[in-house]
């Protein structure tokens, strides 16, 4: 362990931030050892805090209170308001483009109108098969993503801390990572016994690389001073890993998990479009083959919603362990 610690020491200088050294003579005249100024920094901080608040409130009370409230409400809701407005404008433009068969380079002649998409969606909601498509996709994501999290974080932690493992594994990552999911499809079908397993494999690959790379990044940026502190408090390698490296890497791991979730949907869809009989990607592509244009858009929007929702869930799950990174006052 210490060999590593020592190696780290030589190329890492956590204590490099030095105060600029003034000529000592200057220090002498300025410094004033006065023990009566014993107010601690805590009370000083409280005071300055209080000043800020009072300044803020005197400014605010210059406005009539009712206007004040309306203003506050507006401030709270305005981003929501703008969002809704912006979506509405988009829908109207879409509607206009389709009913007037807009065709200037981009062709809206065969594009379903927003209303027809809405009614197709409601029709699908009454169809059990629609839910099966969604559930099958969700199951694939769940299986593939779980394996990716497990292997990705594990691999990332190992190659983040071990120079030898990194040298051995990194070439694979560099070669395989840029290959898009679609390019994997033929080989995946040849490699895996069932269509299902090849789709899950492709989905897994999509999630894997962002997770590995952000884990490695997180491990690498562990402040060396914290590792040293832990060593000086008696921690051995495994404890340093558990109590310092892992928590320090968590913010980066968390963002890798969120990105990985997005990419896994991306890859899943590639797999589902080309093979399979179920899944929301299959649903979308099948709608095209059946010339059922509104369902194409229904499928797309469902994919978008599920992608956002699952990424949001990942963030939500990670949030408690990242409490310490949040800004506070």
């Amino acid at each position: 362990m210490n060999v590593r610690a020592l190696e780290k020491c030589t190329d890492d200088r956590p204590d490099e931030v030095e105060n600029i050294l003034l000529p000592e003579e200057q220090n002498f005249t300025v410094e004033n050892h006065d023990s009566t100024k014993s107010s601690t920094e805590d009370t000083l901080e409280l005071k300055s805090d209080g000043v800020d608040h009072s300044v803020g409130s005197t400014k605010k009370t210059l406005k009539p209170p009712v206007l004040e409230k309306v203003f506050a409400l507006y401030k709270k809701t305005d981003s929501l308001f703008i969002g809704v407005l912006s979506i509405s404008v988009g829908l109207v433009l879409w509607h206009l483009a389709t009913i007037y068969s807009f065709n200037f380079y981009i062709n809206f002649q065969n594009i379903p109108t927003p209303l027809s998409v809405g009614s197709a969606f409601i029709t699908q909601l009454a169809d059990t098969e629609f839910y099966i498509h969604i559930l099958v996709s969700l199951k694939r994501i769940l299986v593939a993503y779980s394996i990716a999290v497990f292997l990705g974080v594990g691999t990332g932690l190992v190659i983040g801390r071990s120079r030898m493992m990194r040298a051995a594994v990194l070439p694979y990552i560099e070669i395989i990572r840029p290959i898009p999911a679609v390019a994997w499809i033929p080989l995946a079908i040849l490699m895996w016994p069932t269509e299902e397993s090849s789709i899950v494999y492709i989905t897994f690959l999509g999630a894997l690389f962002p997770i590995i790379l952000s884990t490695v990044h997180g491990v690498e940026q562990t402040p060396e001073v914290l590792v040293r502190a832990a060593l000086s408090l008696g921690a051995k390698r495994s404890k340093v890993f558990l109590h310092v490296v892992l928590p320090a890497a968590l913010p980066s791991i968390a963002s890798g998990l969120a990105i990985g979730m997005g990419v896994s949907w991306f890859s899943l869809l590639a797999g589902e479009v080309i093979s399979g009989q179920y899944g929301i990607g299959y649903f979308t592509w099948n709608a095209y083959s059946l010339i059922n244009y509104p369902d194409i858009v229904v499928g797309m929007l469902v994919i978008g919603a599920l992608g956002s929702l699952s990424t949001f869930l990942v963030r939500l799950i990670m949030r408690p362990s990242l409490r310490w990174t949040l800004p506070r006052n």
């Binding site: 362990m1 210490n2 040293r228 832990a230 000086s232 408090l233 928590p247 320090a248 310490w324």
Partner: peptide
């Protein structure tokens, strides 16, 4: 030959484990 708990180290700054509470930091050793 290596760091150890018989030599307590105090650094210039930012050396507390930011994810542990004050209590947990002190109880770490």
């Amino acid at each position: 030959t290596q760091p150890g708990p018989d030599r307590g180290m105090v650094f210039q700054q930012h050396s507390l484990f930011p994810w542990k509470t004050v209590h947990e930091n002190i109880a770490f050793g």
